[in-house]
Structure formats: structure tokens, C-alpha cells
Design a protein around this nucleic acid. Structure first.
Lengths: 173, 173
DNA sequence: CCTAGTAATGTTATGCTGTAACGGTCAAGG
DNA sequence: CCTTGACCGTTACAGCATAACATTACTAGG
């Protein structure tokens, strides 16, 4: 099963083959549109960092982003450069922080609600983003029962993606 | 109190008043029992770290644990001392790591399944542990649909506990 | 044009989080 | 006695993150 084009639900990227060039271009275009719409500036640094994250559906540590940013520029930027850009992207729903990995991924569901949940493959490092509501429904119910008011939910599953399960069957059934 | 008859399901601590001295003593006794049962050694360092975590239902960073361990001993132990003890406790279900905070809490549900979910109060720092199944059910379903095999799920909600909502009503709904 | 204000970047320095590697101690067992 | 294995002690360093301040760039108003 190579390419899927059914659009009934958002097909989660990350574990499925797709035209990544188009995926990347679309995400960048979406980011520009969002920034125009909200009066934000997608500066060169921010766009470069987003593009770095968009190179794959894996999560990158801030220092890896920083290294690639340095490589792209030919200079050696300092950590705050990367962190500020990442903070901007996360604050505006263009990227997400993966707490489990202390790392960042580009948002794979442009324009969506942005309470995503994530599946992290330990084999290949790919991260799939799925809508958070379904995953967090039970959590909301528990919170209501406790009188707890949820401001943000972190939902991250770690395991093996289909391809990695197929490659090393001993890791799961 | 809502007490289940024979499942042993406890009401979630952390946000509720309780006899914490007893809670702490019970957890320590449980830890000793678990270690005897499994042939593990609850050494002085490990017991001290567990006791430090049991001082409250808040999450503590490894270096804070380290400081308190040093205070308790009168010496100044190095990071690996704390990390090794914390790793032992986490590996054996006696404590949990809170990814969102890069910090650790004592397990509040001794003997339970150990795929907990957590609610973290931003106001007072308290952490309540709830059974993970309910919270992660939607996640499991999504994973099945994707063919993803979950090895571990991180489910952490950040927000306001009942007491803190009451104290500062502007922060909640 | 000039200027003042704001937002973003550049830079320095530092602190928190986590681990690799090696050596010492102690207990169990040949 | 000597090995083995588990744990602890220590050094050193790697990776993650931010405070604080200087500089640049854009832009709004005179």
C-alpha cells in the first residue's frame, strides 16, 4: 500500500508513504498564509527552521536544528536563535514539541485544532500526529470527575510503526 | 468516600486531603514488600530517594532530589547517585517520570498496573495519578487503526486542580 | 528625511538535565 | 583466596534551555 488518497479522515502522515516534497511545500505555504492572516512575520530564520523540521516527519532536538541552521547559513548560530524560532512555531501551531524526546516536529495537520497526540516510532524515529480529541476523551472525563481543569494535554505513545514491526517482528505481535 | 469493593482501586491522591504520613508509610512498606517479592534490593540510597519523593505529591527534578539527598546525608552526592536510584524506582513501578516536567513522582497507586496517566497542577505543583487505561483507550484505538504497536504511552494533563481553581478563579473556565 | 519605538536577531554566559566511563566496596560463592 | 555481580562514588562531559544585554531592521509618526 503505497499512496493513499482517501480523504474521509485526515490520513496521519509519518508512517505512510506520501509525496513529501508536496507535503513540505504545502506546509510552508500554509505557514505563510497563517502568518499573513494573523499579522505575524515568518522571517527567514523561522522559515528556515520550519523547513528543517519539514525535511522529515521525525522529531529533531533543538541543537540538531541549530546545527542544520548553521550548515544552511554557513555561520554558527547560538542556541537562542533556534529556541526563539521553535517557540514561535510552536506558539502558532506550526510545529509541536514532543515532550518525551525533548524535540520538535513540524505540524502535520495544518489548520487543524492543535491539541494533537503523537505516535513515536522507536525504530525509525518517525512521528505521526493524530487528532487529540479521540485520544484525550477518557482523560477529559477523568479530569471532570476530579474537578481538574485541563489547560494542555500531552499524549505521546512510543512504540513501533507498521514498517518497523514488519522489519523486526520480535518487537511486537 | 467512593470505595470500590474488591478491585483495590483507590481514589486519586494528590488533589485530595489525606493522611499523608500514613500514605507515605504505606508506600514505603509496599516498596519493601515488592522488593522482597521480586528479589530486589531496596538499598539505603533507594529508600532515601523514594522517601524524598514521598514527602509530597509534587514532582521533583533529579537535581532537587539530589540536593535533598545531600541534605539528608550531610554529603554532596553526584548526579548518577540520584539518577540510578530514580531509574531503579521507575523501572520497578515505585515512581514515575513526568516527561512534561523532566521530573519524578512517587507512585501513588502501589501495586496497580502501572500505565498511569497524570494530572499536573500548574498552581501548586501537585500531581495526581490516575489509571491509564481509561485515558489511553482512544489512543489504543487510533494505534490499532494505524497498525502502530504501543510500547509505552505518556499521558499528562497540565492545568488547575480543584483547590487552585477555587483560589484563583480567573485561571479556569 | 529623521526619529523613536518595536520586534527580531546576535552574542555571552550560565544553569538544568542526563550519561559514559572507571574505580572502589561489599557480599555470595567456587 | 579469588571471582563475580550489584551497587555506590567520582570525574568528566554531553545535551537541553534560558537570562541578560547588544545590535539590527522594520515601521509609524513627525
Amino acid at each position: 500500500m503505497a499512496k493513499r488518497s482517501d480523504t474521509g479522515e485526515a490520513p496521519p502522515l509519518g508512517f505512510v508513504e506520501h509525496d513529501h516534497g508536496a507535503c513540505r511545500a504545502a506546509a510552508l505555504a500554509h505557514a505563510r498564509a497563517v502568518c499573513v492572516e494573523r499579522g505575524l512575520k515568518l522571517t527567514e530564520t523561522r522559515a528556515a527552521v520550519l523547513d528543517i523540521l519539514l525535511e522529515s516527519h521525525a522529531a529533531l532536538g533543538a541543537y540538531e536544528v541549530l546545527r542544520r541552521l548553521g550548515a544552511a547559513r554557513g555561520s554558527a548560530p547560538q542556541p537562542p536563535i533556534a529556541y526563539r524560532a521553535l517557540d514561535f512555531l510552536v506558539a502558532n501551531g506550526l510545529a509541536h514539541r514532543i515532550e518525551r524526546l525533548n524535540a520538535y516536529v513540524a505540524c502535520a495537520r495544518p489548520g487543524a485544532d492543535h491539541a494533537g497526540a503523537f505516535m513515536i516510532c522507536n525504530g525509525c524515529g518517525a512521528v505521526a500526529e493524530i487528532p487529540g480529541e479521540a485520544a484525550a476523551k477518557g482523560l477529559s472525563r477523568s479530569a471532570d470527575a476530579l474537578g481538574f481543569d485541563i489547560a494542555r494535554a500531552v499524549v505521546e505513545a512510543e512504540g513501533s510503526c507498521p514498517a518497523c514491526r514488519a522489519a523486526s517482528p520480535e518487537s511486537g505481535s
